[in-house]
Amino acid sequence: TEYKLVVVGAGGVGKSALTIQLIQNHFVDEYDPTIEDSYRKQVVIDGETCLLDILDTAGQEEYSAMRDQYMRTGEGFLCVFAINNTKSFEDIHQYREQIKRVKDSDDVPMVLVGNKCDLAARTVESRQAQDLARSYGIPYIETSAKTRQGVEDAFYTLVREIRQH
């Protein structure tokens, strides 16, 4: 089974770092803004072998026109913010609204991801993020692309959301 996953969120929150940590098991430290990259990885989730087709997208506003296209083809979405960047957390709402509009559905598989949880300088409390996820009816997972904490959990949870859909 193949799953088309799309990673969305503001610029600099760590979308590529999360994806590369999942696929290649290493942490990319330097920031190089993405336009669009796709990665494929075969994994076993709950005993089922599946192929993850992951689209890593641009957070930069100037590429926002490309969003409709990949939102149409994606089956599930990782909505990523950084726990030390309140603005990126506030941006999640717009991504969710755009996904709902493009998919013409209120019920699209999504996982809210709070990345950079290895950093002490948190400005978005776990509780705020949990409340937001609960209001959307989606899971919330904290990750660190640096330490790998929660990385597999985030992507695998999204696959489970798609399966249950």
Rank of each mutant, 00 (worst) to 15 (best):
K116I: 15
V7R: 03
E142A: 06
L22D: 04
Q94Y: 11
C117E: 09
E75H: 06
V124E: 09
H165N: 11
I99G: 02
V28W: 09
F77S: 01
N85F: 06
E30Y: 08
D37G: 03
L18M: 13
C79Y: 11
D56Y: 09
L55W: 14
S38K: 02
V108F: 15
D118P: 03
R160E: 06
Q24E: 03
I20Q: 05
I54V: 07
V113Y: 00
L22F: 10
Y39N: 03
R72H: 06
K103N: 06
D153M: 09
D118Q: 03
F77I: 07
T34V: 01
K87D: 11
R148H: 15
V6M: 05
E62V: 05
S64K: 11
I162T: 07
V113K: 02
E75L: 08
A121V: 11
T19K: 04
F155K: 02
G14R: 02
I23D: 03
Q24D: 03
F27L: 06
V44W: 01
V159S: 01
V43M: 05
S144D: 15
E90R: 09
Y31I: 09
T147Y: 07
E48D: 06
I54H: 03
A10M: 04
P109E: 05
V108M: 03
Y136E: 00
I162R: 08
Q128T: 08
G9P: 02
V151C: 04
G76D: 04
Q164D: 15
R122F: 15
L22C: 13
C50W: 07
F81G: 05
T57N: 08
F77E: 00
D56Q: 00
E36A: 02
Y136G: 09
E125C: 12
D106Q: 08
R148E: 09
Y95H: 06
A121W: 06
S105K: 15
A121G: 11
K103R: 12
M71E: 04
T123A: 09
K87L: 08
E152N: 03
V28G: 06
G59D: 05
Q94R: 15
P33K: 12
D32M: 03
F89N: 05
V80F: 04
R160M: 09
V108S: 03
K4Q: 12
Q164Y: 09
Y3W: 08
R122L: 07
A154L: 14
V151T: 09
G114T: 03
K87W: 09
C79W: 06
V124T: 11
Q60I: 15
T143H: 00
E61K: 11
C79K: 03
L51G: 09
V124D: 11
E161Y: 09
E61I: 04
L18H: 02
K146E: 12
D32A: 08
I35K: 07
G12M: 11
V159R: 01
K116D: 04
Q60L: 13
S135D: 05
V43I: 10
Q24H: 03
V44F: 04
E61G: 10
V43G: 07
A58P: 06
I138T: 04
T123M: 14
A58F: 00
V102Q: 06
A120L: 06
G76V: 09
R134S: 10
G137N: 08
D118C: 08
F27H: 03
M110L: 15
K87G: 04
F81S: 05
V108H: 07
E48Y: 15
L55G: 09
F27E: 06
E152R: 11
I20S: 06
E2Q: 04
K100I: 08
L119G: 15
I54P: 02
V28T: 12
I23V: 08
N85V: 07
E90S: 07
A133G: 02
R96W: 15
K4A: 11
V159E: 00
T86H: 14
I20D: 02
L51S: 13
H165K: 15
K116Y: 13
V111G: 00
V151R: 01
C117Q: 10
E152S: 11
I35N: 07
E36S: 05
L18Y: 01
S88H: 06
L51H: 13
V102L: 06
A17D: 01
S126Y: 12
Y95Q: 08
R72E: 03
L5Q: 01
R122Y: 10
T157W: 08
Y140F: 07
S64M: 06
D32K: 02
E125Q: 08
Q94P: 04
Y63T: 13
T34E: 01
T147L: 10
D37W: 02
R127G: 11
N115E: 13
R67L: 10
Q164N: 13
T143K: 00
V102N: 14
A82L: 00
A154N: 01
S38I: 14
L112H: 01
V108T: 11
M71F: 06
I92D: 01
E61P: 10
Q42W: 04
I83F: 04
K15V: 00
V6L: 06
E75V: 11
V151M: 07
D53P: 03
G14F: 00
G47W: 06
V8S: 04
D131H: 12
R127D: 13
F77P: 00
P109W: 03
A133I: 02
T73F: 13
G12W: 13
S105N: 13
T157V: 08
Y63Q: 11
R134H: 12
R72N: 06
C50M: 12
N84S: 13
F81P: 01
C79V: 15
I45A: 11
Q128A: 10
A145P: 06
K15L: 02
A120M: 10
V28C: 10
K15C: 07
G150V: 08
V8A: 03
S88T: 08
S16W: 01
F81M: 05
K103S: 06
A120Y: 06
I162M: 12
Q149W: 07
T123E: 14
K116W: 15
K15I: 00
I162F: 12
A10G: 11
V6S: 05
L55S: 07
A154H: 02
C117S: 13
L55F: 05
D68Y: 04
